[in-house]
Design a protein around this nucleic acid. Structure first.
Length: 528
RNA sequence: GCUCCGAUAGUGUAGUCCGGCCAAUCAUAUUGCCCUCUCGAGGCAAUGACCGGGGUUCAAAUCCCCGUCGGAGCACCA
């Protein structure tokens, strides 16, 4: 039944119990708090949105908000969304060639596939054409004022001398810009807005500037005249037919700037939703692509998927489902105030997704070895999952000594229940098997702890957001496959990342794997 | 300094447009109890919020004003 898709399940239910289904669905509607309706959605035949990342690195957790919300709206309205890489600054926000795919990868992890993918750096000629048209509409002028000088004039609400140039001259100079005849900083094209606008941020903004540094993409490395985001993005949103722009509050004024361009062209500006910034509560590392990149560069982090990094690749490697992140992001809503996202909310979502299907194992961190006395069973057989006996049991050879976590060591002469094995009394440095049955646990006299055999357990490194933890896991862990999820009982969920070849008993029978790191069994901690 | 935004429990969110049904929703968190051979899951319960001050009104979380706090923009960054 669980293999069925939601639709299939729903259909099946509809046949079997239509009334109950209606009830369930009615409840659902009252229960969840979906995103608010998109403004003026009914006015459009198709809701079209875009996700416009700057390809300067893989995504951190905060980036998930855009696809989560846009993707959710797409599903709700049966709409459309694209990814558009706004890679129009080859210098200060220099694109990272690997980031384009890394971002699409992250998107896929979150469970979304864009309906189209664009790169602004492929579309320069389009932007040039619109600039020419704008110039002819007397809506833009070439300006060679040094930045500071213009800024002073602007703040005083005074036009610069270049503002009155005739369209012909402007067009000529703009063509020279396009042809790369100016050096960086020599000439810009400004949009003529309202030089006395009460909001200084909106006065005559730059639409194109010269950049000497070639673009890293081969297809774009001949261009020297690059559009600014406000221009490029404004043109593209209209050409792509975007009906709803969703983006951060840092771009609030951008909408107002772009409206001037739209007015020149006689275009309707899309609906806009601006939201605040997302802060994550759980990481030491600042959530910014450049900070993370630096830490990786300096070797402080192992890479974008280091469990200490607040990135999507990190969460993915830890075995967290993209869906858990998406749900948490959708829950944040779209308010314009800044929000703190609690990782616990992602963890809670994920736990619900994985708990039922994740088998149990033992793993002892920083174990203390205790010899066993009496005559305990030779093998322990705890269930793979306490709620699913049908999945069978584990086979853990007991041996003559076990490892316990330091916190679990019983006091002298106290009893302790080794989970799945039985009751032991701690006497003279030895755990003596007793005949007590499980009732002593039920009565609350004896603590239940997890354990591993001292000799046959497998060494394991568990990577966590707080750093690496070393321990030993029950032998069965050596037979797991990378990417499998486990729950180490009383420790937490983890994703198996690598299984050491030497950890398996029958390693000689196995096909050899050509992986260097095979000597070590590694798990990534998911959450508790 | 100029210009915009925003403010509901630890966190997020509903309600604010169209004032009363809000002594305020849901989730998460924390705590306690039940269940359980996990500190997981499940069940139950508790904790906890309308930024402050005025005004309008029979009635304000909701409308108005003033403050306070927070955020954003004022780039040849995105």
């Amino acid at each position: 039944m669980n293999d069925l898709s939601y639709e299939e399940k729903r259909e099946r239910l509809e046949e079997l119990a239509p009334e109950e289904l209606a009830e369930i669905e009615a409840e659902d509607e009252g229960d969840d708090h979906p995103l608010p309706d998109l403004p003026n959605a009914e006015a459009y035949d198709e809701i079209r949105m875009r996700c416009a990342p700057n390809p300067n690195g893989p995504w951190h957790v905060g980036h998930a908000r855009m696809p989560a919300v846009i993707g959710t709206y797409r599903d709700r309205y049966d709409g459309w969304f694209c990814v558009r890489f706004d890679d129009t600054d080859p210098e200060t926000k220099r694109p990272d060639l690997e980031a384009y795919d890394a971002i699409l990868d992250d998107l896929e992890y979150l469970g979304f596939e864009p309906d189209a993918v664009y790169r602004a750096s492929d579309r320069l000629e389009t932007y040039y054409d619109h600039a020419r048209e704008l110039i002819e509409l007397d809506g833009a002028y070439t300006c060679s004022c040094p930045g500071e000088e213009f800024s002073e004039l602007k703040n005083a609400g005074e036009p610069c001398p270049h503002r009155d140039k005739d369209a012909e001259t402007v067009l000529e100079e703009f063509e020279a810009m396009v042809d790369g005849e100016y050096d960086s900083g020599e000439m810009v094209l400004r949009v003529k807005t309202d030089i006395e606008h009460k909001n200084p941020a909106l006065r005559d903004f730059v639409a194109f500037r010269m950049i000497d540094t070639p673009h890293p993409r081969e297809e774009a490395n001949d261009y020297r005249c690059w559009p600014m985001l406000d221009f490029q993005s404004g043109i593209d949103d209209h050409l792509i037919g975007i009906t709803h722009i969703i983006r951060g509050i840092d771009l609030q004024d951008s909408a107002k700037k772009q409206r001037f361009v739209y007015d020149y062209f006689g275009w309707e500006y899309p609906e806009v939703v601006h939201w605040g910034h997302v802060q994550l509560d759980a990481y030491d590392v600042k959530m910014s692509t450049s900070t993370i990149a630096e830490l990786i560069e300096e070797g402080e982090l192992d890479g974008w998927d280091d469990p200490r990094a607040p990135t999507l690749k990190s969460l993915r490697r830890r075995g967290i489902r993209g869906e858990a992140i998406v749900d948490a992001m959708v829950d944040l809503g779209t308010s314009t105030s800044d929000v703190d996202l609690a990782m616990s909310s992602i963890y809670a979502n994920n736990r619900e997704l994985i708990d039922d299907e994740t088998d149990r194992r033992f793993m002892v961190r920083d174990g203390t070895e205790l010899p066993l006395g009496g005559s305990p069973p030779a093998e322990a057989n705890p269930p793979l999952h306490p709620d699913h006996e049908e999945r069978g049991v584990r086979e853990i050879p007991v041996g003559d000594a076990v490892l316990l976590e330091p916190d679990d060591l019983p006091d002298r002469e106290e009893r302790v229940w080794l989970k799945g094995l039985g009751c032991f009394r701690y006497t003279d440095g030895t755990l003596e098997h007793t005949d007590d049955d499980i009732d002593v646990v039920r009565e609350g006299d004896v603590d239940v702890v997890h354990w591993v055999p001292a000799s046959e357990s497998v060494p394991l490194r568990m990577r966590t957001p707080e750093g690496d933890v070393f321990g030993r896991a029950e032998p069965g862990v050596a037979d797991l496959e990378p990417d499998e999820l486990v729950q180490f009982e009383r420790v937490g969920f983890a994703r198996i990342d690598n299984v050491a070849q030497s950890a398996t008993d029958d390693s000689s029978n196995r096909r050899s794997r050509d992986r260097h790191e095979d000597e070590e069994t590694v798990a990534y901690y998911t959450h508790d």
